[in-house]
Amino acid sequence: MTEETTQVSVSRRIAAPAADIFRVLAEPRRHVDMDASRMLRETLFEGALSGTGQVFTMKMRFKQLGDYEMDNHVVVFEPDRRIGWAPVAGHGHPEQGSSWGHRWIFELSPDGPDATVVTEIFDLTGMPENRRAEVGQGQVWLPGMTKTLERLDALCTGG
């Protein structure tokens, strides 16, 4: 029996080459600038990501939890095409060391020489059903994902 894939996604055409967009996505310090949830505060990772297996820690704030950290394990890394990570609760989180089994992934599809369709994916495939229900099967993230891609667009195009 194969596991059913459950994902929600949002796409946006950005007037920038995939390589330029990927550079922003591969630099965790830039995530604070593009995050529409306003939960990200700063990263403890210096430089750019270079492959799977790396872990970058983000300082976060969520009203119900206060300040905490998330350790993001890079699980997808295809330069200029795909990048993604699986979050694990870090220092200060009440479930430190645990994972809900979800992943955040960005896919980049060139659309001409100077444009790219960027798709942000919230992959719930590995999440237990009770956790999926807590996030409305991922639907709660769609407005923020839409805004995040707007911010990514502005970062990459100067808009």
Rank of each mutant, 00 (worst) to 15 (best):
E4S: 11
T5V: 13
S9G: 03
R13P: 02
A15T: 10
A15V: 08
A16K: 08
A16Y: 11
A16D: 04
P17I: 12
P17G: 07
A19T: 09
D20P: 05
D20Y: 02
F22Y: 04
V24F: 05
V24D: 03
V24P: 02
A26D: 01
A26Y: 08
E27P: 00
P28R: 02
P28L: 10
R29S: 13
R30A: 14
R30D: 11
V32N: 06
M34D: 10
M34Y: 05
D35E: 08
D35I: 08
A36V: 07
M39A: 15
L40H: 14
R41S: 04
R41P: 00
L44V: 12
E46A: 15
E46Q: 15
G47F: 13
G47I: 03
L49T: 05
S50K: 14
G51S: 10
G53R: 05
Q54P: 13
V55F: 07
V55G: 04
T57P: 11
M58W: 13
K59N: 15
K59R: 15
M60F: 05
L65E: 07
Y68P: 09
E69D: 12
M70N: 14
D71A: 14
N72I: 12
V74C: 12
V76Y: 12
V76H: 13
V76K: 11
V76P: 03
F77H: 10
E78F: 08
R82I: 07
G84F: 06
A86R: 15
A86N: 13
A86Q: 15
A86E: 12
P87E: 10
A89V: 12
H91G: 06
H91R: 14
G92Y: 08
H93R: 14
H93E: 06
H93W: 05
P94V: 07
G97S: 10
S99Y: 01
S99H: 04
W100M: 15
I105R: 13
L108C: 09
P110R: 01
D111I: 01
D111L: 03
D114Y: 07
V117W: 02
V117M: 05
V118M: 04
T119S: 05
E120S: 09
I121T: 01
F122G: 00
L124I: 05
T125I: 03
G126S: 05
G126T: 02
G126M: 03
M127F: 00
P128S: 01
E129P: 02
E129N: 04
E129R: 09
A133N: 01
E134S: 07
E134W: 02
E134G: 01
E134L: 11
V135K: 00
V135W: 02
Q137Y: 05
Q137N: 13
Q137M: 10
G138K: 06
G138Q: 04
V140N: 01
W141P: 00
W141I: 01
L142F: 07
P143S: 11
K147V: 12
R151T: 01
R151Q: 13
G158M: 08
